[in-house]
């Protein structure tokens, strides 16, 4: 083989051109719809600024609840940028929305058409590199959410269990799993090392790595659950649903 590349400028192909015969557009479409529906609902719910509390329950969109005089908008906006940023810079979600929304690429082996591409080397996508700081912020919020879970089992000073308590518990558990299986966490906990002197650290790294394989699963179920938790509190608060006390 000759070592010199005698390559001509490539013909730019039109968008969507491929020899693939399968339904390659189906997966990105599902993600686009699913992700879009959540963003739509979350934005609406955050703008409401009411119906976020019911009995001992607090909607995760509003936790921790910060009510201050100088802030004229919904309190949700004071904290929502953290989980939003965490998910937007998440290594899994990046794949999903680059494919579904940016069409970059729409699917493997499917042409993108003609456009300029700088990937994550230039503004604004270069800020994806700060994912670990959003992880840090999200971990702080998780502490508050666990606090909310404890409160959700406290009905006027007495232990009790309502369906809402379980919804908030499930939500916080799933969010914790989503955070624990984060790629950045995996790096910080041991991925940065080339060899492990400490067996405990290695075991922890292995467990996180194992969970990391299912990061996509935790991403989707936690996304669904956090939306549902808000909806549950909201509908109870609006009087549409009744919270059933189990204990």
């Amino acid at each position: 083989m000759s070592a010199i590349l005698t390559e001509k400028p490539k013909e730019k192909e039109s968008f969507g051109k491929t020899q693939r015969k399968d339904l390659w557009w189906f997966e990105p479409l599902v993600y686009a719809v699913g992700f879009g529906a959540f963003i739509f609902y979350a934005t609406w719910a955050a703008f409401q600024g009411k119906h976020y509390e019911y009995g001992p329950y607090l909607s995760p969109f509003y936790s921790p609840l910060i009510v201050v005089d100088w802030w004229k908008f919904s309190p949700a906006f004071l904290i929502l940028w953290i989980p939003a940023g965490f998910r937007m810079t998440c290594y899994y979600y990046r794949k999903a929305y680059y494919r579904s929304y940016f069409m970059d690429p729409p699917a493997c082996g499917v042409s993108e058409g003609c456009k300029k591409y700088t990937g994550e080397t230039a503004f604004p996508l270069i800020f994806q590199n700060l994912h670990r700081y959003f992880l840090l912020g999200a971990s702080v919020l998780l502490c508050f959410l666990w606090g909310d879970v404890i409160k959700a089992f406290n009905f006027n000073g007495h232990f009790g269990v309502g369906v809402g308590s379980l919804v908030l518990l499930a939500n916080t558990f799933l969010l914790t799993m989503y955070s624990l299986t984060c790629h950045s966490f995996r790096h910080l906990i041991g991925g940065f090392k080339d060899s492990f002197k400490c067996g405990y650290q290695y075991n922890l790294y292995e467990k996180i790595s194992c969970g990391n394989k299912h990061h996509m699963f935790w991403a989707w179920v936690s996304l669904f659950m956090v939306g549902f938790a808000d909806l549950y509190v909201r509908l109870c608060s609006m009087g549409i649903w009744t919270d059933v006390r189990l204990i």
């Binding site: 290594y91 990046r94 794949k95 680059y98 494919r99 970059d104 690429p105 493997c108 082996g109 591409y117 700088t118 990937g119 994550e120 080397t121 996508l125 270069i126």
Partner: peptide, 10 residues
């Protein structure tokens, strides 16, 4: 150019 990779996993 690792920054050009946008981890779309193909």
């Amino acid at each position: 150019g690792i920054g050009f990779c946008n981890i779309t996993k193909c």
